[in-house]
Every structure is written in C-alpha cells, then in structure tokens.
Design a protein around this nucleic acid. Structure first.
Lengths: 149, 149
DNA sequence: CGCAACTCAGTTGTACACAACTTAATTGGA
DNA sequence: TCCAATTAAGTTGTGTACAACTGAGTTGCG
C-alpha cells in the first residue's frame, strides 16, 4: 500500500534527476548552441547521417509535433539540411551540414564531463541504465494496456 | 572515455524513463483533471496545507516562472486558493479548497497503480530512489561548481 | 531616518512535449 | 482502376521548464 507522500515516490526522484541532468547539459551545451533534445538529434545523426524524420522519431520516441519545429530550428542555425524525398514526397530526409558534422569534434568531450558529474563508475552507469530501460519498458507496456494507442 | 553513442548514455535512459512515467500519469490523472506537475503540488499540499509559493518552489525545485502560472490554473479549476500574506505583502499563501481536499480521496489509489506499472518491489523502489537521489545531488553539485548560481 | 540591497511573486520570451488535427502523398483491396 | 484507408510531416493549442526581467514590498546598515 503505497502512500501519497512525495518523498516516497520514485517518480519524483526520476523527475528531479532528469531535470538536474538536463540543467547540467544546458550549461555544457551552451557553447555548442544546442538544447538537450537538439543534442540528442545530433547524436543520432552523428551515428548515422541522412535519416527520415520518422526514423529519428522512432529512435528518440518523439513525434512530429516535437521534431518538426526542433528540426526547423536546427536548420535555421545551419546544423542540418532538410530534403524532401524524391520517391516518396511525404518523407523528409535530414542530413548534417558541414557545420553540423564539424560540431561533433566540439562535442567529443561532453560524455566524459557528464560522466564525471554523475560520480558513478562505468559499471554503475551500465547497471542503472539497465534498470531504467527495464522501468521504461514496463511502464510503457502498462500504459499501453490501460490506454491502447 | 565515454562515447557519443546514444545507446550508451545514462542520460537518455533517464530522459526516456521520466517521459514514460509522465505519460502513464497523464492517463491516470486524466480523471482528476490534473497534470503531473499539478499533481506534485497537490501532493505537497495534502501533506501540509497553507504553504507559501516559495516553500512549494523549494520542495519541488520549481521557480516562480513555472509555479505562478501553474498555481493560477489550479486556482481556476477550483483546487486551491491564493491569499496574499498580511504581514508580508510580497508572499502568497496557497491553501486547498474543499474540492482540492476532496480530490485526495480520488488520488488515494494512484501510488499503487504507478507502483504496479513499474514491476519493482518495495525494496527495489527504495533502492532506485536512493540511487536517483544521489545522482541528482551529485549532478547538481557539479553544475553549481561549473556555473555558480 | 533614509535608502540601497534584497526578496517574493509574477511576466515575458524561448523551447520542448504531446494531443488533436490538417494536408498531401501513397497503398491496397474490391 | 479507383478510391477508402493509411502514412508522413507539419500545424495548432495547452502546459510545463527556465532564463531574464519587473515591480512591489521589506530589511538592514550607515
């Protein structure tokens, strides 16, 4: 029988931790002119360039309502290019510009800074990441059962 | 030497888990007419009523830029009352209305629903909560060292 | 006392999230 | 073949987050 006490709740811990990490990213990413969600898109593109909006959405779990304006901003700041697909005019392909590719070097040190801030060793990070992934999957499955897409 | 690979990053796990939990709350709280941050404010008030905006902000780590409009919405929906403090006209005291107090009964079952969705036992929840709290504190300390308030 | 420094809440502007909707393009089955 | 259903991206509207600022009120120190 769980209580309504704020302190007890894992959810509030999750919410606080997520906001704390984002606010550290805000400081670190200021240099690169990126927000945290924009950085996530850049990470995805650095890993594999030339992606459809749909693919980015699947990888980051973001819908077009979030991605469309975010990608427009990344285009405005010269990080990515948008090209309507020739063989399917509904699709838009996102690719890195030279500036976007170049930004990768400036970002190279970020994971270590974030890692240092967490004061967790590699094993601790991997373990927690695993726990969070299981939690996400479990919660998403439960939600979909409650309220089917 | 951490990599720029999205999969490796604890931060993305945290971000995903936090959004998954919030989206489950969205389904569960729909009945009560609350958003998740509004629910957090109600939890704080159910625990202790008659709080200054400043106190709520300290407990939830939210500034007035977030709280002021949120509290205005809770006032509009009849959950809380705002009273300017007589002995210090700068302060505003937030108190539950009868409806706001009554909502507590409807919320009583929520923690168990969320707990069930997480498929973690009580010990697992407590442990993870502890790890997240340590992470939050560590990250916040690091950020404040980088960029003093 | 007088007033500069500070405090509290609120406002403004930017950027997510996300539901609900729109538009245009594609697909698949009768 | 034709057209209803589906799909992709974008738009609209609401509600956080948060930085930067405003304005009113309070405090403390010379």
């Amino acid at each position: 029988m769980a209580s309504l006490r704020l302190d007890d709740q894992l959810c509030f811990g999750l919410y606080s931790a997520s906001r704390a990490v984002t606010s550290l990213y805000r400081v670190v990413l200021d240099d690169l002119g990126l927000t945290y969600p924009q950085y996530l898109v850049m990470l995805a593109l650095w890993e594999r360039d030339d992606r459809l909006v749909k693919e980015l959405g699947a990888e980051l779990n973001l819908d077009s309502g979030t991605l469309s304006p975010l990608l427009k901003r990344l285009e405005t700041t010269g990080m990515v290019k948008r090209t309507r697909q020739a063989d399917d005019e509904r699709s838009v392909r996102i690719s890195l510009t030279a500036s976007g590719e170049a930004l990768r070097a400036k970002a190279a040190g970020i994971p270590d800074v974030i890692g240092a801030a967490m004061s967790l060793d590699e094993a601790g990070i991997a373990r927690m990441r695993g726990e969070l992934d299981r939690l996400t999957e479990s919660v998403n499955a439960y939600r979909e059962a409650l309220s089917p897409a």
